[in-house]
Amino acid sequence: MDVIQTNSLTKTYDGKGGISDVTLSVGEGIVYGFLGPNGSGKSTFVRTLLGLLQPTSGEGYILGEPIGTTKSREQVGYLPELFRYPDWLTGKQLLESHADLCKIPVRQRNKRIEEVIELVGMTGRDNGRISGFSKGMSQRIGLACAILNDPKVIFLDEPTSALDPIGRKDVRDLMVYLRDQGKTVFLNSHLLYEVESVCDHVSIVHQGEMIAQGPWRELMMTEAQVEIVTEGSISAPFPPFITDYQKGKAEEGRTRWVVQLETEKDIPKILHHLSSRHIDVYEVKPINPHLEDVFMHWVNRKKESAYVDNQ
């Protein structure tokens, strides 16, 4: 059974903005990346799934339950993009109140609270009032809240927006940990690096429209670029099908090239070609595309196909 499933789900604000016509299904035990630039409708989509917003049209299900029902939210965790918690509570009291709402049995409560506090790295700091928390600490306590009820599906809306590099790594590790436990993580992000190392599957949204979805690698390898460092100062050592390359500067008898590829599969071909000509290769490094480039690629693809469709 799909953990999340939507059918032409649409939420617009008086006909403007929001996100339209999203059909997707998310399986169990994966990290699903929902990628898009600012204002593309990511938060709108998640908030609609959680019943905070009333869908304009279409339908959605979480764990088989129609969205908007209390049942659909029983095994769900959520870290909002604008995480604000009652600042007169202490971190621990906040978690206790949520444990109450999730009907976690009293006996397991304290143990579970300690567990999640540990998981988000807030041990020893949970007895302070939230009003005295830094932004990063609030986001961490929000994460603790999101995983408190051991949910099957966890929605994280830009979970690292307030975190330092260590915190970002912690969150990445946490997502992997959750996935390894068979949970599904739905991650909203506009940061490529946040998504790349953990997401199994992504969708790309742009201006309220879903423009592509699929396995991470496939979607990102749109405009593969590699950096290759070869020996010497030879000119143009590449096979003829490579037409677009730039020669960088030569250092210590080595030359740095930036090569534009059609697909990822060209990389081994180039290496074959180079080794058959006995050219030494010191380094091959894929250059990650900028998210904007990936977006533009898929936006253009979408427009083209729409054009073809119209013909």
């Binding site: 908030r47 959680l50 019943g51 905070l52 209390t70 049942k71 939210r73 029983e74 769900v76 959520y78 909002p80 604008l82 995480f83 604000r84 918690y85 009652p86 949520h98 709402l101 999730c102 009907k103 929000g142 809240c145």
Partner: peptide
């Protein structure tokens, strides 16, 4: 308006 309500309402309460 402070969005504090989000995390309460996403719990299984009507």
């Amino acid at each position: 308006s402070s969005h504090q309500i989000d995390t309460w309402l996403m719990r299984p309460i009507s």
